[in-house]
């Protein structure tokens, strides 16, 4: 189980990286960005991914940071997930993102894997895309034409595919200011501790005068991308935070899902069921945290 041959570049600067990507693009060379490699390496080892070139971003130390900019929390794409997990700033200002980070894989994987790598890899079973949808995160990319900011809703296109151009590099993820009093939850069903989720749900909501408001709910591990459960959100908006309302909303959210994917561990119907159960439980947990 050894990778097929490839060439390797580790540019010193972001412009250099973009220039390389441009060159490979125009030469028709299949280049792939290496951000940490925790998802890419197994694919290389099994020879299911066979890029001709790897462009390793490890030298771009300037993309390793966690900063508060006004209310916004910005995380450099090359920041190890473990750094986000251990950051007091992340824990205190973005509890949902922090909880999601803790759910990713195992310690060693979080040490080596980067925050940006997970976003760019866009595995539908990953926690981050769902959290990005719930929190209205933004993704900053730099390409030959300069910088652009992509709303999470436009970033994830389909299975392991984003709206990044082949010549663009994801440089930063941006978390909008956390609204005080927002309740949140993330729950998932994985076969073993640390496994990719069979299904999961992330949620936020606020309670205003005893009613749920600003309900955001997204499921992961179910469709080709993480997906907002809008039917559930709409149904719960303005409702009291009660078990029956959560159940009704969860059922609507799960019921409106596109046909979930199927694998040896979970059929399509079972995944739909998991979304319903986890959504119900997440809403209750989020409501219990809302003030």
């Amino acid at each position: 189980m050894k990778p097929a041959p490839f060439a390797y570049h580790a540019p010193e600067t972001l412009p250099e990286a973009i220039t390389l990507l441009q060159r490979f693009e125009s030469d028709g060379v299949d280049a792939k960005i290496l951000a940490g490699g925790q998802s890419l390496m197994p694919m290389l080892a099994m020879r299911v991914a066979r890029p001709e070139v790897l462009v390793d971003l490890r030298r771009l130390r300037s993309l390793d940071y966690i900063r508060a900019e006004g209310g916004t929390l910005t995380i450099g794409a090359m920041t190890p997930k473990r750094a986000a997990e251990q950051s007091a700033l992340v824990r205190e200002t973005q509890p949902l993102f922090h909880a999601a980070t803790e759910l990713v894989g195992h310690v060693g994987v979080r040490n080596r894997g980067t925050v940006g790598g997970s976003f760019a890899h866009a595995d539908p079973a990953s926690e981050y895309p769902a959290v990005a949808l719930v929190l209205d995160m933004e993704l900053k990319a730099v390409g030959p034409a300069g910088e652009r900011t992509i709303p999470a809703a436009d970033f994830f296109v389909t299975y392991m595919t984003t709206s990044l151009e082949a010549t663009e590099v994801l440089t930063e993820v941006r978390l909008p200011a956390w609204t005080r009093g927002t309740g949140w939850a993330i729950q998932e069903m994985a076969r073993r501790q640390g496994d990719l989720a069979l299904a999961g749900v992330a949620a936020t909501l606020r309670l205003v005068r005893g009613a749920c408001t600003g309900v955001r709910l997204a499921a992961f591990g179910v469709n080709a991308t993480a997906v907002r459960l809008r039917a559930a959100e709409e149904l719960l908006e303005g409702q009291r935070p009660e078990a029956a309302n959560f159940a009704r909303a969860a059922a609507a959210g799960a019921g409106n899902l596109e046909e979930p994917m199927s694998c040896v561990h979970a059929s399509s119907e079972y995944r739909r069921q998991l979304v319903e159960v986890l959504a119900k439980r997440c809403l209750a947990e989020a409501a219990s945290r809302a003030v």
Partner: peptide
């Protein structure tokens, strides 16, 4: 920091 040396080049 711990890491898997099979997932690292």
């Amino acid at each position: 920091r711990s890491g898997r040396s099979c997932l690292t080049l």
